[in-house]
Design a protein around this nucleic acid. Structure first.
Length: 256
DNA sequence: AACCGGAGCAACCGCCACGTA
DNA sequence: CTACGTGGCGGTTGCTCCGGT
């Protein structure tokens, strides 16, 4: 389930996060915020790259994360949004409070995708069945009055009938051509055309909000007592450390 | 009991967008 | 205008678990 920890060439740890690392990261972010992910691990006492810290915090350590136990409503929402948005997991996650894009992505690939494909296959089969029925009917109607007899297959190209690229098309009673693709409930071809207005504004940027121990209810698997954990000094309050940030304006870039 | 393959999922990687100097 | 740094996102990987044989 989890990766074996190891170090890369630069000495940064990779792989599974240990409870100790989780404690350090949680303690640091809750106390100082995420002023700079790339610099953060250095001051949080973590031998991790910033990206790894960010991912760990966003997906597992931040407060009010929901883990597993997807409700039917949530699953339906995911399927519906995936139908209109495609693989825009962050946009989908924005509509599901407490869910992360990574978790939704995983849940989609492991559970919902199959269900979605089955649904799609069933609807396609239904359309095929309908087509077959209609095509048989078509044969009977056209074969009778024409003289000399027409071979329907070859006649398709010479007539305003659907071309070979429309093999999945259906001719309805009133002679209109309906592609079976159009009858699929979820239109992947329109993924990029879907209106995304509102998603950006709705994403609820967690990082723009102040964040303190006192103001949040930490809901994480890591039990952390801030009083018992010795945090590294905050870089801008410590003369020795803050020298790394000579060009950094301490009045900017903070979230608190 | 041992082996094997698929499922589940945490984490990494690479690319892109955006802001700033 | 360009270069660079950073954050964000989606695709993919690879480790562990678990059920079937």
């Amino acid at each position: 389930m989890v990766r074996t920890p190891y170090c890369d060439k630069s000495g940064l740890r990779k792989g599974t996060w240990t409870p100790e690392e989780d404690r350090k990261l949680t303690a640091y972010v809750t106390r100082y915020g995420c002023w700079n992910w790339r610099q953060l691990p250095k001051y949080a006492g973590l031998a991790r790259c910033g990206k790894s810290c960010r991912l760990r915090w966003l997906n597992y350590l931040r407060p009010n994360i929901k883990r597993g136990n997807y409700s039917k409503e949530e699953e339906e929402t995911i399927i519906r949004l995936h139908g209109s948005l495609g693989n825009r997991w962050s946009a989908i996650a924005a509509q599901l409070p407490g869910r992360t894009d990574n978790e939704i992505k995983n849940h989609w690939h492991t559970h919902l995708k199959k269900r979605f494909m089955d649904k799609q296959n069933n609807s396609e089969k239904a359309v095929e069945k309908k087509e077959k029925k209609l095509n048989n009917h078509h044969h009977l109607v056209i074969d009778v009055p024409t003289s000399p007899p027409l071979i329907l297959e070859s006649s398709l190209s010479a007539s305003p009938q659907p071309t070979s690229s429309d093999q999945n098309s259906t001719i309805t009673k009133d002679n209109t051509v309906v592609s079976s693709k159009d009858s699929v409930t979820y239109d992947h071809n329109n993924n990029n055309k879907a209106s995304l207005e509102g998603y950006g504004a709705n994403s609820g940027n967690f990082w723009n909000e102040p964040f303190f121990w006192d103001s949040c209810n930490i809901n994480t698997s890591v039990t952390l007592d801030p009083a018992s954990y010795e945090l590294p000094d905050f870089p801008f309050l410590d003369g020795e450390i803050s020298c790394h940030f000579d060009s950094y304006d301490p009045l900017d870039g903070f979230y608190f």
